[in-house]
């Protein structure tokens, strides 16, 4: 980093120079390894997906609803739809709860509680996806089938979202499970963002006679908004790519239904279920094509979210 200018020239022996040069090259090589890994992912994904380009047109692949490996017909729409619907449910639930938690911990609760409350969130983030899937299958799905879905149907049954037989397995189960899984991400990043809100903003609102909640609404939330959006997008990125838990509760049926109670399928789930036993090269390529879609979308979302979060913690007012 900083080379001291006053170091007298003769004391630097050839050995030192060599060592420094080797170290510098080594470091750069390690840094370059990250770029190599990124390149490798893109190259291998496109490589495995390559045979698809001759077999199916891009439009048919993205907008077709018929997925039939036996007849070499590959339409990804049911999977794209299922991924989007479950992620939307997850973001709606986890966004509300996660931002609520962050507000409570940074604005309302005593500071000691924050350190304690971050611990269960970390635990929640550390539980492997497969364990969530097992829990979802044994606990969440029966609860949804027996209580939540009939209740929703009775009270909100006029919406197309809540029509149909309450099976348990389906978009709603996957969405709720995803919400639980992305909650720690959203909550902890939102907490970080809220902590960068200058205290003077809160104090100004409170000094004008605002209640705690009004101070939050008037000064904290508007200031933290870009960061919160970033946190939500990061959560969305995780929800889109989550595999095991969704595979176990979504019902694995390649159909498109308006009802959240219906079983569906998602991009990661179909890859997980069919890849190892793919019927031929085109089938494997089609699944890799789904992976490519997933990769492109999550990477783009992640990039946007990182930029937003970085900007939010060092934005226009932040210098003063």
């Amino acid at each position: 980093m900083t080379r001291l200018p006053s170091v007298p020239e003769p004391t630097i022996t050839a050995n030192v120079r060599l060592g420094d040069r080797v170290w510098s090259i080594l470091l750069t090589a390690f840094g370059g390894a990250v770029l190599v890994v990124a390149g490798l992912i893109v190259i291998e994904l496109t490589h495995v997906a390559q045979p698809l380009s001759g077999a199916v047109s891009l439009w048919k692949f993205l907008a077709g609803a018929d997925w039939d490996p036996v007849n070499d017909s590959y339409g990804a729409l049911p999977y794209i739809y299922g991924t989007l619907v479950t992620s939307a449910v997850a973001i709606a639930l986890a966004g509300a709860v996660g931002v609520g938690i962050a507000l409570f911990l940074t604005e309302m609760a005593p500071p000691q509680l924050r350190a304690i409350a971050m611990f269960p969130l970390e635990l929640l983030a550390g539980i492997p996806s497969i364990v969530y899937g097992l829990w979802g299958l044994t606990v969440l799905v029966p609860i949804l089938r027996a209580d939540v879905e009939p209740w929703l149907q009775r009270n909100l049954g006029f919406l197309p979202l809540f029509k149909g037989a309450p099976i348990g397995l389906g978009y709603l189960a996957a969405g709720v499970l995803l919400a639980i899984m992305i909650l720690p991400t959203i909550a902890s990043i939102t907490v970080e963002v809220m902590r960068t809100v200058p205290g003077t903003l809160r104090e100004a609102a409170l000094a004008l006679g605002a209640t705690r909640w009004e101070a939050v609404k008037l000064s904290v939330l508007p200031y933290a908004r870009p960061g919160i959006v970033g946190a939500l997008i990061l959560g969305l990125g995780r929800a889109l790519g989550e595999t095991m838990a969704v595979t176990m509760v979504i019902g694995n049926s390649p159909t498109i239904s308006a009802s959240l109670f219906a079983p569906g399928y998602s991009l990661p789930s179909v890859i997980a279920n069919e890849f190892a036993e793919a019927s031929g090269q085109t089938h494997t390529a089609a699944l890799a094509g789904l992976g490519l879609i997933l990769f492109g979308v999550t990477m783009a979302l992640n990039a946007i979210a990182r930029l937003l979060v970085a900007w939010a913690s060092r934005g226009p007012l932040r210098k003063s």
Binding site: G31, H47, G241, P268, F275, F295, T298, R306
Partner: peptide, 30 residues
């Protein structure tokens, strides 16, 4: 360069694990 590497690492830390499976499949299983 470090900035590009940092951003790449940040973005890559969100890569879906199933996608990485396909990468390893293409790299070694094939």
């Amino acid at each position: 360069t470090p900035r590009i590497v940092r951003f790449t690492a940040e973005v890559l830390s969100g890569v879906p694990s199933i996608v990485v499976g396909i990468v390893a499949y293409g790299l070694l299983v094939v």
